[in-house]
Design a protein around this nucleic acid. Structure first.
Length: 176
DNA sequence: GCTGCGATTATC
DNA sequence: ATAATCGCAGCG
């Protein structure tokens, strides 16, 4: 039995573990329109990018590379992966797929905010949130708004020109 | 112990 | 087009 409480037109049901354990490209696309909840703030996700460690030269964990930083991506889907970049910004990702498969989805935009660094700043996400489990009471993602297939734009990922053939993968998803 | 650079952003 | 700014991977 499924009961969906609705608050205005948002479906407020929390996403469960199984949502995140699916293939990364599916999760990246399905996260559009979902509502990220943290620090008492709520934000509609509008732009994402997939990073698939086993085959993706743009991914920190390419070829299953384990370092102190990438260790988070080996956790089961549904955890937060937060890292600092350029010594001054944080980037927030949601880990996907089963434990041991280092994959994640970068949250590149939320409603009214473009760019992964600005997203973290707007939501107050820092290194402290790395490894946070989203199957929790305080920090999680809700069903949010249904998104139509025709409203989704697909394109190449941003700022990964160093990543050889992977730079041309169409692993970026966005709405509006 | 050094060196170089990055899934970015603000500003020239 | 370029500076800002630092954790850390790679090297040896």
């Amino acid at each position: 039995m499924i009961f969906l409480r609705r608050k205005e037109n948002w479906i407020v049901k929390k996403l469960d573990r199984n949502f995140y354990l699916r293939p990364t490209l599916e999760v990246a696309k399905d996260l559009l329109g979902k509502v990220f909840v943290i620090n008492g703030k709520r934000a509609i996700i509008t732009e994402t990018e997939a990073y698939i460690g086993p085959i993706d030269k743009a991914c920190h964990a390419y070829g299953y590379k384990r370092t102190k930083r990438t260790e988070t991506m080996f956790l089961p889907g549904g955890h937060l992966y937060v890292y600092m970049i350029y010594g001054m910004h944080y980037c927030m990702n949601i880990v996907t797929e089963r434990e041991g498969e280092p994959c994640a989805v970068l949250i590149r935009g939320i409603e009214g905010v473009s760019g992964p660094g600005r997203v973290c700043k707007a939501l107050g996400v820092t290194k402290e949130h790395d490894r946070t489990d989203l199957i929790s009471d305080e920090i999680y993602v809700e069903e949010g708004i249904p998104v139509k297939e025709e409203d989704i734009s697909i394109g190449k990922r941003i700022n990964i020109d160093y990543a050889k053939e992977a730079k041309d993968f169409l692993w970026r998803f966005s709405i509006e």
